[in-house]
Amino acid sequence: MTDSKAAGFVTLQLKFTEPAGNKFKTIACCTFKGPQSEETEYTVSYFFNKNLMMEYNSTRGNWTGFTAYTIEAAKWWNSDHLDPLKKRIERKLLCEDTLDLIQSIDNLTTIPTVRLKSVKRPNGEHASTLVCSAYNFYPKQIRMMWMRNGQEVTTDVSYSDVMPNGDWYYQTHSYLEYFPTSAEKIACMVEHLGLSEPMFVVWDPSLPVEQRTRIAVGLCGLVIGFVIAISGIIYYNKKSAAYITVN
C-alpha cells in the first residue's frame, strides 16, 4: 500500500503453465483511490513469459493490446457487447463488495516490539555489531534509524528486508558496526504508523537483568559451597583433636 490513508490494493493472481514451460498469468487488481466505490479502478492484465500482452482498465473502459496479435484481440473484445457487462460484475465482486473489508484492514495497525542487542565480532576484534530488531508490526511500512549522541548515524549501517512474520505481521532488522566507548549514547529510533511519536531504544552496555541475576545466583552458590567446605574442615579438625585427647 503506497499510502495507507489514500489507497489500497487487492491483487489476485492465477497462473497457468504449459508442459513446455511457457507461463500464462492473469492479474486482477483493484485500486482504491478514495472512500467511495465509484473511485475504484479495476484492471485485468494478461502476461505471457512475464511479458505484458493485454490489459483491461475500467477507467478507460476498454482493452489495450501490446503485440500485433493482442492488438487485434483487443479490438475483438472491445466490440463484444457482453464483455463490459462481465467486467462490471467482476469489478463489483472483487472491488466494491470488499471495499469495507479493505478499509478496515487498511486502518489496522500493530505497534512493533523493538529489541536491541550486541553481537561480538569473531577473532577477538574490538568492533561489535549492534542489532536493532522490530517484530510483530503491521502494516509493513517502517523506518529504522541509528542515533549517536542525538545525531543520525549514516555510516556502517545496514538493513534487512521487511519480512512477513506470519499472521499479517512483519519483522525487520538493522545493524550498526561500532567501537564501544563509554562517552557515547547510542539509540535505535523506530517510526511506524502505529506509533504517535518515534520510539527510541537506548543501548545500555551493562549486563541485562537476567544475566546479572544468573551471575548473582552463581556467586551465592559459590560462597555457600565455600562456607560448607570450611565448616566441614573445622568440624573434622575438632573431631580429630578430641579423638587424640581421649587416647
Score class of each variant (00 low, 15 high):
28 A>K: 13
15 K>I: 05
57 N>Y: 14
245 T>S: 13
123 N>G: 01
214 R>E: 14
136 N>P: 01
86 K>H: 07
101 L>C: 01
80 D>M: 04
134 A>G: 08
142 I>Q: 05
76 W>K: 09
163 M>S: 12
19 P>L: 07
4 S>Y: 04
12 L>W: 11
168 W>H: 02
10 V>D: 13
160 S>E: 14
173 H>L: 13
89 I>L: 12
145 M>L: 10
94 L>N: 04
140 K>C: 02
130 L>F: 08
211 Q>M: 09
92 K>R: 14
46 Y>M: 15
153 V>R: 06
198 P>D: 07
71 I>E: 15
69 Y>N: 14
37 S>C: 08
27 I>Q: 14
183 A>N: 12
151 Q>G: 07
190 V>S: 09
68 A>I: 10
66 F>C: 02
151 Q>L: 13
85 L>S: 05
44 V>M: 13
54 M>P: 05
209 V>M: 10
108 L>Y: 14
193 L>S: 09
245 T>Y: 10
76 W>G: 04
162 V>G: 06
87 K>I: 02
143 R>C: 04
8 G>Q: 11
101 L>K: 02
204 D>L: 11
198 P>T: 11
241 A>M: 09
147 M>H: 04
197 E>R: 14
178 Y>E: 03
149 N>H: 07
211 Q>D: 14
108 L>H: 12
206 S>A: 14
165 N>C: 09
